[in-house]
């Protein structure tokens, strides 16, 4: 077993653990923190089904962003939808026999990889060119885009120019999952690609990537507009009810 294989195997285990545990800790925090008031942005849904539909539109169509900024919506949606299909396509490296959905994404996947890259470059362009966005951007905001651009870029380069032994890559990842390590090809482009993915996984719970779980816990989006019909009291606030008599 080469040092390289052991190193990357351990790297992927560590990054996966960090991402899963880190996200679990944040999700637990969000879930356990009460929302003492009903604060849905209205007009909002008045039934639970309506809330599910609202969140679906937000997560799948980016409804609010569409209202807010057409360019951000276009680039953001291209990037996210592209990434989704690319991720599904990558399931071929983790499933044997290959899952049906990964096969479905096989042909369109590469085009959506390009769409993803185009969306990311558009987002970076806006961040650099619009004075309001420059003002609100920290170094981490640029680095996150550059990281994703580099991941998409190295992936596409491997697809079209510096091919790697994808059969061996698949064996490596299946081996990781089965605790039966297999050698990882020592191709520079592949190693860069995988290293950047490890970085992305590791920073997930410590960065603005928390918008992914965050949207589901956003009280302005996930609450039912029914405060008159249903009394809603947080545990810490219900203690105040006992002492709320006014001074007369």
């Amino acid at each position: 077993m080469s040092f390289l294989t052991v190193f990357y195997a351990l790297l992927f285990y560590a990054a996966t653990a960090l991402m899963v545990v880190g996200l679990a800790v944040k999700i637990r925090q969000y879930a356990r923190t009460p929302a003492p008031f009903k604060i849905p942005t209205t007009p909002g849904p008045i039934t639970r089904g309506g809330v599910v539909a609202r969140l679906f539109r937000e997560v799948v169509l980016f409804e609010s962003l569409f209202k807010g900024s057409k360019w951000s919506w276009l680039f953001g949606w291209l990037f996210h939808f592209g990434m989704l299909v690319v991720l599904v396509r990558h399931l071929r490296y983790f499933t044997e026999p290959i899952w049906f959905v990964a096969l479905l994404a096989q042909d369109i996947g590469v085009y959506l990889g390009m769409a993803m890259l185009a969306g990311l470059i558009g987002l970076l362009g806006r961040r650099l060119l619009v004075d309001r966005l420059r003002y609100i951007s920290a170094p981490s905001d640029y680095l996150m885009l550059l990281l994703l651009i580099a991941i998409a870029g190295t992936g596409l380069l491997m697809k079209y120019i510096t091919h790697t032994d994808i059969v061996a890559v698949k064996a490596f990842f299946l081996g990781l999952m089965r605790a039966d390590w297999q050698p990882l090809p020592a191709d520079a482009m592949l190693l860069v690609h995988l290293t950047l993915v490890v970085v992305l996984m590791a920073v997930f719970p410590f960065s603005k990537l928390l918008h992914a779980p965050g949207i589901f816990f956003s009280p302005t989006r996930n609450q039912i507009d029914n405060p008159r019909e249903r009394r809603h009291v947080a545990p810490w606030a219900s203690k105040l009810d006992a002492t709320r008599a006014p001074s007369k």
Binding site: K26, S72, L133, K208, L210, H211, P219
Partner: peptide
């Protein structure tokens, strides 16, 4: 915590 963590500085 949700609002402080989630912002991606999209500029909308």
């Amino acid at each position: 915590p949700v609002f402080l963590d989630a912002c991606v500085k999209c500029g909308a």
